[in-house]
């Protein structure tokens, strides 16, 4: 997007065409244009969306409050949010957040259930190993340390019953 021009001065300095913001607002793109580094003339819809949802004045104020090296990220996030709000006027990007949060919750539950399954298998394997051939299952990641304890617990019980 504006990455090529973010660290350099406004492209208006070197080209005749004004930035997308100035073009849209029908004003002269001056050398100190706040929008020029982030709204190149090749992407007119980017500014149009942002202006429609947030307004050029608000965007300008927001950009002035943050450090220059963060402005490009801020503009890109604003452009994303504006586009989302245009596509979904009711929820905007918050709709995506809601969907993703539900997905995360579902995933967490699934992870818990799957972890419990794994624990059960690990414990069963340890039991079978102790009572049978002595081989069970062992999981190596940090989340499964309890299975190790269970396995050793099973072993302790077995050895105490077979002095």
């Amino acid at each position: 997007m504006a990455s090529s021009s973010s660290s350099s001065p406004s492209p208006c300095y070197y080209s005749n065409s004004p930035c997308a913001a100035c073009k849209f607002l029908r004003r002269k793109c001056l050398p100190g244009c706040t929008f020029a580094p982030y709204f190149p003339p090749e992407e007119p819809t980017k500014f149009a969306n942002v202006h429609k949802i947030f307004g050029a004045s608000n965007v300008s104020k927001l950009l002035n409050e943050i450090s220059p090296h963060q402005r490009e990220d801020a503009v890109n996030s604003l452009a994303y949010e504006a586009e989302a709000r245009i596509k979904d006027p009711v929820y905007g990007c918050v709709g995506s957040i809601s969907v993703l949060q539900r997905q995360v919750l579902k995933l967490q539950k699934e992870l818990e259930a799957t972890n419990a399954d794994l624990m059960r298998y690990a414990c069963d394997g340890s039991l079978a190993g102790v009572l049978g051939t002595g081989s069970g299952s062992r999981v190596s990641d940090g989340s499964s340390s309890a299975s190790f304890d269970q396995g050793s617990g099973c072993f302790v019980r077995f050895s105490s019953s077979n002095p």
């Binding site: 927001l62 990220d73 994303y80 905007g92 957040i97 992870l111 799957t114 989340s143």
Partner: peptide, 30 residues
């Protein structure tokens, strides 16, 4: 002020990706 909701969405995407990887690993273990 910089990332806004966009940053949070990114974070959630990353969280989901990590969770899916973990889930896949656990299923392999099972």
């Amino acid at each position: 002020p910089v990332a806004g909701c966009f940053g949070y969405i990114h974070q959630l995407h990353y969280q989901i990706q990590r969770g899916e990887e973990e889930l896949h690993a656990i299923r392999s273990q099972i």
